[in-house]
């Protein structure tokens, strides 16, 4: 008789633990998942909140005005007038330079790794290219300042100026090697591994029958690559480019180190400039007035909006073609 309560008692306690444990784990998992959503909402709210004073003062004109005058003393003309025109220009131009370099190079690397490299060579080079993405931007910036900038100043910029000097963007070479062009080149190094690894995966996903079919029809390898592989993965390559753009737009540190913190709009790529992200890196910790901090938050809002648009676009492209084709990941 005495064994009965124990025999039923144990499973009940166990069952209670089971039920509580299930609820607890599910609750915690839902809570953690909601945290991710809440953090996004909180970031958007907090940045807009911090920028509200600046948004109401300068409105949308902030986007194209290029005064940035954090004067704290009263009586100075244009004191505490801010605009992000030069910064948006700098962000767009450096990102464009990086994509112009990294997209063709990255796609070519993708072609090599997925279609041309002998198995063992590809197995070594693929991870090495991905390792490039692991190098922190501050180290690439340090390398850019001390190693790349002098080479830019003494060799590359004069050569480009000499050959293409009639185009205004290749103007007088800089005195230090620091500037928009150098920043764009180092950004390209950061974007390159992203484009390369995505395009490799894309090209690997092209059905073998299509590639073999083209070769069987007498196409050369390159004709097969151009006609079958590149053609069928075009939307994926667009998404890869957009993801690379997302990386380039938001990079603050290396750009701060290499762009030379200029404040003038110039056609010449060899002059100094500044971008949204790098202005934030330079000035958020020591604003001279609350208006300046609000203007910096406004810059962060612009950057956030650009990134959200770019990332959602990449998502849409990938989703759309996942549904239609199944070729993309």
């Amino acid at each position: 008789m005495s064994a009965m309560p124990a025999a039923t008692g144990l499973p009940t306690r166990r069952r209670l633990g089971d039920r509580l444990g299930d609820r607890l784990l599910l609750g915690l998992a839902i809570l953690a998942s909601l945290t991710a959503v809440v953090v996004i909402a909180l970031i958007i709210y907090k940045l807009i909140d911090g920028a509200s004073a600046s948004i109401s003062t300068f409105g949308l004109g902030f986007l194209w005005h290029s005064t940035w005058n954090p004067a704290s003393s009263a009586g100075v003309a244009d004191a505490n007038v801010f605009g992000a025109g030069t910064l948006i220009f700098g962000t767009v131009v450096t990102s464009a330079i990086s994509l112009l370099i990294a997209v063709p190079l990255g796609v070519a690397i993708g072609v090599y790794l997925s279609l041309l490299a002998p198995g063992r060579v590809g197995a070594v080079i693929g991870p090495l290219v991905e390792l490039l993405a692991a190098i922190p931007s501050v180290i690439l910036g340090l390398w850019g300042i001390i190693i790349l900038a002098p080479v830019m100043r003494s060799t590359i910029e004069p050569a480009l100026h000499g050959a293409f000097g009639f185009i205004p963007i290749f103007g007088t070479p800089s005195a230090t090697g620091l500037g928009v062009f150098t920043a764009g080149v180092v950004l390209a190094i950061m974007v390159l591994p992203i484009i390369a690894s995505i395009s490799r995966d894309l090209f690997l996903s092209v059905p073998r029958e299509l590639k073999d079919g083209a070769l069987a029809l007498g196409a050369t390898r390159w004709e097969m690559i151009r006609g079958v592989v590149l053609d069928s993965t075009r939307p994926g390559l667009a998404a890869a480019t957009i993801l690379g753009l997302s990386r380039a737009l938001g990079e603050a540190i290396a750009v701060t180190q290499l762009m030379g913190a200029g404040s003038v709009l110039s056609k010449n790529l060899f002059t100094t400039g500044d971008s949204l992200a790098s202005r934030l890196a330079e000035q958020v910790t020591n604003p001279q007035s609350s208006q300046q901090l609000a203007a910096l938050f406004y810059c962060a809002v612009i950057l956030l909006a650009m990134e959200l648009v770019v990332n959602l676009a990449a998502q849409l492209i990938v989703r759309h073609f996942e549904r239609n084709q199944g070729v993309l990941r």
Binding site: A36, V39, I40, L42, I43, K46, L47, D49, G50, L243, S246, L249, G250, E251, A252, I253, A277, L280, A281, V284, T285, L296, F297, A300, L303, L304, E307, L308, V310, N311, L312, A314, Q315
Partner: peptide
């Protein structure tokens, strides 16, 4: 995905605020 694509400087400004 959005959190992953968000630049670290934007996250830093958020935490600063």
């Amino acid at each position: 995905d959005l959190l992953n694509g968000m630049p670290s400087i934007v996250i830093a400004v958020f935490v600063y605020g």
